[in-house]
Design a protein around this nucleic acid. Structure first.
Lengths: 188, 188
DNA sequence: GATAAAGTGAACAGATCGGTAAACTTTGTC
DNA sequence: GACAAAGTTTACCGATCTGTTCACTTTATC
């Protein structure tokens, strides 16, 4: 099973949505940038919303896969992995195409919590929490749920800061804050 | 000098942009919701972009005014004021119309750093930093710049988290993390 | 009470929006 | 090599987008 046109479409749509936003990207622009006919697009997806949802699913899979593997590579112990989260962020911020978190943008443009697009963004964040919660438990944190949530707050804050202010150093600042939290949560 | 039509327009445009987003809000919708004629709008502002910029200026003034006064009321010492930031956030998150940070949304929809809208969002964040930097200095922090940046990262993360996941508790979680950072930065 | 500023409604550009229709061509499979 | 699936081009639909034009009415001021 080679990559189908459908996969190609979703992949390129993801890039375009990420680079220019959802409302700002029209279907005609996707035709130009992907070289795929509009008729073909609407054979795969009933609506623009469906295409956006597919793009977000792909992004979720790609991002979690990348992040969790990077964290595992950057640290042996659970604690080192949690710190590694912020080293991974630093690598991401340094990439030329970095534009912030796609799910924050999605939830930003589709604000109603009932909206499927917003819901999918929230689901992505929930999956990140699960992973960090597991690591915090393994690390022996006093309150692993709280620690995971606080680390995720630092993560979201660093991403937003890096994007708006163009300050990739936010990753290092968040990392230092995370170390402080870990010291307090893992003291015994 | 009573409130002019212009101020009324900017105020109502601000609410509509905040509730529904920038690209998703057309000028015709603003005509409906404000009751102000389109002709009149374009007499005050040459373009939609100019109106957005005016709305963001108003938001910046309103938000900083509210936040800094709330922080001052919630704490006497500089340290208490910095903690109060997160109590103020909790109050904001509990408001019915809470939709996250307007400037994050603006920078999200207008991603190019050169874009005037994006630049204005960044300017707002810089003003927040200035204020916190001053307080951190007064509090006697070892590295007041770093502390201010870390507290702002917590603030941005809490806002994004509260909005996407609908979890206003993020304010309290960020507050606990901030207390940990303050303990470490102010130890002598 | 005349005058000018400010605001109004309605119609209209020209472009773009999401989405569809019909007729045709490529591609892979048995 | 027949046949179906998948993809193509082209034109089109009605709605909406930002922005303009024009003729008219309200409002405040001296």
């Amino acid at each position: 099973m080679r990559p189908t046109k459908r996969d190609e479409l979703v992949g390129k749509a993801l890039k375009t949505f990420y680079a220019h936003g959802f409302h700002a990207t029209g279907m005609d622009r996707l035709v130009e940038e992907t070289g795929i006919s509009k008729t073909s697009m609407y054979k795969h997806f009933r609506s623009k919303e469906d295409l956006i949802l597919a793009a977000l699913r792909l992004r979720d899979a790609q991002f979690r896969d990348w992040l969790f593997h990077r964290m595992a590579a950057l640290g042996k112990t659970p604690r080192e992995q949690l710190v590694g989260l912020f080293d991974a962020l630093a690598e991401w911020f340094a990439e030329p195409g970095f534009r912030g978190c796609m799910f924050v943008k999605a939830a930003s443009e589709y604000q109603e919590a009932q909206d499927p697009i917003h819901a999918q963004a929230a689901a992505h964040k929930a999956l990140l929490f699960e992973h960090l919660h597991g690591l915090a438990s393994e690390a022996g944190a006093r309150d692993p749920g709280l620690l995971a949530r606080q680390l995720l707050i630092l993560k979201e804050g660093a991403i937003v800061t890096a994007q708006i202010e163009g300050r990739p150093e936010a990753a290092a600042e968040a990392k230092a804050a995370a170390a402080c939290l870990l010291d307090a949560a893992l003291a015994h």
